[in-house]
Design a protein around this nucleic acid. Sequence first.
DNA 1: TTGAAAGCGCTAACAG
DNA 2: CTGTTAGCGCTTTCAA
Lengths: 346, 346
Amino acid sequence: MAANRRPTLADVAREVGVSAKTVSRVLNADGPASAQTREQVLAAVAKLGFQPNLMARNIRVGGPDTTIGLVIPDLGNPFFGAVARSIEDTVHDRSLTLLMGSSADDPDRERALTDKFLARRVSILMVVPSVGADHSHLKAHRTAGLPVVFIDRPGAALATDSVVSSHRTGAHEGVAHLIAHGHRRIGFIGDLPTKLYTRRERLAGYRTALQEADIPYDRSLVANAHDRQGAEAATSQLLGLADPPTALFAGNNIVALGMVTELARSRRKDVAVVAFDDVELGEALEPALTVVAQDPQEIGRTAATIALARLDGDRSRARTITVPTRLIVRGSGERPAAKLINVGGS
Amino acid sequence: MAANRRPTLADVAREVGVSAKTVSRVLNADGPASAQTREQVLAAVAKLGFQPNLMARNIRVGGPDTTIGLVIPDLGNPFFGAVARSIEDTVHDRSLTLLMGSSADDPDRERALTDKFLARRVSILMVVPSVGADHSHLKAHRTAGLPVVFIDRPGAALATDSVVSSHRTGAHEGVAHLIAHGHRRIGFIGDLPTKLYTRRERLAGYRTALQEADIPYDRSLVANAHDRQGAEAATSQLLGLADPPTALFAGNNIVALGMVTELARSRRKDVAVVAFDDVELGEALEPALTVVAQDPQEIGRTAATIALARLDGDRSRARTITVPTRLIVRGSGERPAAKLINVGGS
DNA sequence: TTGAAAGCGCTAACAG
DNA sequence: CTGTTAGCGCTTTCAA
C-alpha cells in the first residue's frame, strides 16, 4: 500500500552513520574511502534499494544531461528505425541515452518535441526537420555549445551540421537506369507534402534524367502519396492513364511498398520499377526490385560522429555531409519497354 | 566563443524586477498574476530565450519524471519499431516522452538500461525482457508505485503486467495450416538463443501441431538463426538434408526474411512456407507469403493503457494479456507437398 | 497580487 | 580518510 518514498543519499548515510558526502564519494568513485566504509555503504545501498537520482545530480553538476534528443517523422518507419539504431550504437560507449519522439512531419509537433528536449538539457539534438519548421530558436542553443544535427534533410535557413543522402543524384541514377532500358514514359510517385525536401530533390533528379535523354516532362506522370494505401491508388491511377507509363519510379520506401503491392495484385509484370530506398524482401520479388539504396547505418553513424566531435569542442564551420546512395540493380528496372519482348529468345 | 550560461528563472526575474516565484507563477499558470507583470515576464522570457530546466523542476516537485523508459531488443527491428510507435501514440496526450534503448537481448545491457531509466525516475518502465535477466530489483519499485510492464514475453519470476502475442497457438495454427495441405516433413527455424521465451513457445506450438497429426517430432528438422544471414544458411542446410522438409515454418520476422530470400535465390518454389510475424511485401511475393501475423499496434496500445491505469492508481492484481495472432493465408502455405502437383490440370 | 525563506537530492569547495 | 557548508534551478510554504 504505502507508496514509500524512494530512499535518498541521506537515508543511506544515516543507515551507515556517515555523512551524505561520503556515500556520494563511494558511489561515484570520487575521493578516497576506507575499505570498511565502502563496504558498509554498499551494503546499505543494497539493503535500502537506493538508486541515485540522476536529475538531482545533473542539476548540481550543471553540465548537460547524458541524453541525446532525436526527433524523427515516424518511429515505425524502418528507415528511421535503422538510423536510430546506428546512432545508438555510435554513442553507446559515451553512455548517452536516446530520448525519441515522432513528429509525423508536423512542424508544431517537431517544435514541441525539441522544446521538451531542450528543457531536459539534452547533450545533443538531432532532428529530421519537418516542412515549414522554423529553427531560429535553436540558434542560441547552438552558440551556447549544444550540438545540433539535421538528418536526412538540411535545416531551413540555419547554418547547422546536416547529414543527407544523395537524393538528387540517386534519383537521377535510378531514372537513368530505366531510360537506358528503353523507357520514355516513366511515372514518378513522390512523398507528400510536395514541398518536402526529399521529395523535391528526388523529383529534381527525375527531371534532369529526363532532360538529358530529351524526354519532355509530363506533369500527368507525377503523382503523390502519403502512405502505402495512397501509393497503391496512385499506382493504379497512373497505369490507368490514356497513355500510361511503361515504368515507375517510387520516391521513397513507403511508396515502394504500395507500388509493388499494387503491381503484384494487378499482375502487371510488364511495368518496370525502380525504388528510392531499399525495402525488405526487395530481392525476393519477381523480378527482384531494383533500388536506389540509402545507407541508414552510415547516416546515423555520421550524424552521431559529428555531434560527438562538437561535444568535444570542434568549433569548425557547419558542414553538410552527403552519404552516397547506391543503385542496386536486381532486375525490376530491366523489364522491357513496350514491345521489345524477347528479342534474344531463350 | 563564450559558452554562455543558460538563463535561469532568476535571470528573468532580475530582468523584469520581480521575484523568481512570480516568474514561476506566470510560467506555470500557478497562482495569480497581474496582466502587466505577466506580459513583462513573457517578454523577458522571449528576450533571454529562457527555457525552464525540467530537471530542476522535477527534483523540487518530487514526482516522477514525464518520461517512459522502454527497453527493446533492437531499435531497428520493424516489429519493435511498430510497438514503440503505438506506445508513443497512446501516451501522447499525457505528454510522456519516450526514453529508449536496445538491449540486444543481453541481460547485462538490459539491466544497465533499466538502471539508467530508474535513476531518471521514469514514470513507467516497459521492457522486452532478455533471456536470463533477473528482475528482482524491480520489485521494490513496483511496490513503490512504478508501473512496470513486460512486452512480448512475460518477466521471469515476478508478478508483473505483461502483454504477449499468442505465440504458441499462433505457431500451432500456422503449422496446422501446412499439415492441412499435406505436409508431413516440416522444418522449423527459430530464434536464438533457444531458451528465448518466444522461441520456446513457438516451437511448442509447432510440436503440438505435429502431435495432433501423429507426425513424429524430428529433431533434425529444427534449426536456429540469430539473423538474416543465419536464417539463409539454416534454410539451405535443412533443404540439403537427405530427407528434406517439404515445408518450412519461420519462427520470427527476421528468420522469415532470410528464409524467403534463400528460397528465392535457389528458386525453390516447391517449398511451402508459413512465417510467424508479418513482413513488408509479404503479399507481393509469388506466391504471397502466408503468415501468423502479430499485432504490434495492439500490443503497444495495450501495454501503454495498462501502464497508464496503474499510474492512475489501479492496484489490481498483475495480469498477463494475450494479444491474438491471426493466420493470414496468402498462398505460400499451400504449395503442394511432394508429388501432388497439378492434379486438377489447367 | 507579490515576495522571502526553506528545501528537493545531490555534489563542489573547503575544511579538518 | 571524512564532515560541513553552500548552492545547482526550481517550487513550496508562509507571510505580507
